[in-house]
Amino acid sequence: LSGHYLYYHYGCDGTDDRGWGCGYRTLQTLCSWPRGRPAGVPGLAAVQAALEDVGDKPPGFCGSRNWIGCVEANLCLAHFEGPEGRLCHVPRGAGLRGELERLYSHFAEGGGPVMVGGDADAQSKALLGVCVGPDTEAYVLVLDPHYWGAPKSPRELQEAGWVSWREVSTAFDPNSFYNLCFTSRNSEEQ
């Protein structure tokens, strides 16, 4: 990953969103890239209002604890004029292995964090890098928004596994579909 991002996770703004906010937090991380600043990062209420405004969610969605995924994140990236989003659907988790070259190219060409979430595996997360070994080994660098608390240091987060390299074959449910939301610098920044 090139550029800088902020790590948004459960409760980072004082709101207890455990159990429903991982998609929002991953979206916030995406919005903080490439400068690594909170300017332009929408709060949870602003995300919900935007989804009502664009017609994706019905009136009354604001204030709910309903989840969002990559499709909603992509709509919000456009609405808030954040990084450009591009969606990719993978029918089964085992198929993510076939997306490694695309992910590698994305990061090598200066692309930003990639949001990922599925159906059976509905826990949103961000991908920050790819590493392919000499044999069949393949890893993705995962930033997990499910952390609760005030982290003391990046090292603490790494040691606890909140940001970690995970083997592709075990990091994703082979029976779940996945959506990926790739981010890139918008045209004004290029």
Rank of each mutant, 00 (worst) to 15 (best):
V41R: 01
F61I: 03
V163S: 13
G40N: 05
E101H: 12
R155W: 03
A49G: 08
E52M: 00
G36N: 09
P38Y: 07
S187W: 12
Y178F: 12
N175K: 11
S64K: 06
L128Q: 10
A45Q: 08
A94Q: 10
L51S: 03
F182R: 02
S184V: 08
E52H: 07
C131K: 14
V114I: 01
G111M: 01
G85F: 03
Q158A: 15
S184P: 05
G19T: 04
R35D: 14
R65W: 11
P145N: 02
V140D: 01
L128G: 08
S64C: 10
Y139G: 04
T15W: 09
V168P: 05
A39I: 00
H4I: 04
L100V: 04
E109C: 10
V130G: 09
L1Q: 14
Q123K: 14
L75Q: 10
P145R: 08
V47Q: 08
P151V: 00
H4R: 15
E84K: 00
H9P: 06
L75G: 06
G111A: 01
K125Q: 10
G129S: 13
R92F: 09
D56A: 11
S164N: 00
C70L: 04
C31P: 02
F107C: 03
A45N: 05
N66Y: 15
Y104K: 14
L44S: 05
Q190C: 13
P42G: 03
C88L: 14
L1G: 14
A73R: 05
P91Q: 00
N175D: 15
C70N: 09
C76P: 11
D119E: 14
D17C: 08
D121A: 11
L75P: 01
G40P: 04
P83Y: 05
V114G: 02
S105K: 14
E84A: 11
A45V: 09
L77P: 03
R97Q: 11
L103F: 11
G21E: 04
L87S: 03
H146L: 13
A50D: 13
H89W: 12
H106P: 07
A50F: 13
V168G: 01
V54K: 01
G129D: 15
V140E: 05
L143F: 02
L103I: 04
C88H: 13
N66K: 15
G95T: 00
F61K: 06
V132T: 12
T170L: 10
